[in-house]
């Protein structure tokens, strides 16, 4: 049986040790920042509710589960308007980060306001999302896409369609 020389194993050993040390460092930093990141994300989500529907008194309700991009649903107890936290993470996002938005939508299924809360692609979304204000499920299905961000705008359009469908279902259930 051949003896394994240390010189042959050394590169793999050194690389393995460096990987372990870096992984430990990352675990440590993750431990330190995890709670802060969660807190910041939560605060931003809550702030986005007020951004799309100022002065609302929000109460969380359970989503129908029929539309997978709907992550959380709140209802304004004063006006009955739904505010939804939407998120999609598909082949459209090359960075691996999700495309998130907050939508205010009436029980009639018409979008009242939209805000993009997270978009990490290379191109800016610009004012593309504003065209969805006033649209319902059918209108959203036929909404224009945007050149240069075709994949992202397809994902966004589908998200808006989901939001309108969710509001229609929830509105129907309430009646």
């Amino acid at each position: 049986m051949k003896k394994v020389k240390f010189e042959n194993v050394k590169p793999a050993l050194v690389l393995g040790i460096i990987c372990l040390v870096v992984a430990a460092l990352l675990a440590g930093v993750n431990l330190l920042t995890k709670d802060v990141i969660e807190k910041v994300s939560y605060e931003r989500k809550m702030a986005s509710l007020s951004d799309v529907l100022p002065g609302g008194n929000f109460e969380e309700i359970t989503p129908t589960g029929e539309n997978e991009t709907v992550k959380a649903v709140y209802i304004d107890t004063n006006s009955g308007v739904y505010v939804m936290l939407m998120s999609t993470k598909s082949k459209f996002t090359s960075s691996g980060q999700s495309l998130d938005a907050t939508v205010a939508i009436g029980s009639d299924g018409k979008i009242q306001n939209v805000k993009v809360t997270s978009y990490a692609e290379t191109k800016n979304f610009g004012d593309y999302y504003k065209q969805f204000v006033g649209m319902d499920k059918t209108d959203a299905e036929g909404a224009d896409l945007c050149a240069g961000i075709t994949f992202s705008s397809t994902a966004f359009r589908s998200m808006m369609k989901d939001a309108a469908a969710e509001a229609e279902t929830l509105g129907g259930a309430m009646k």
Binding site: T33, I37, V40, Q97, A120, E121, T122
Partner: peptide, 16 residues
Amino acid sequence: MLMHAYLPDIYDMMGV
């Protein structure tokens, strides 16, 4: 991770 935690606006702006 540090930017995500302490400078979230710049983190979002820099994206990918």
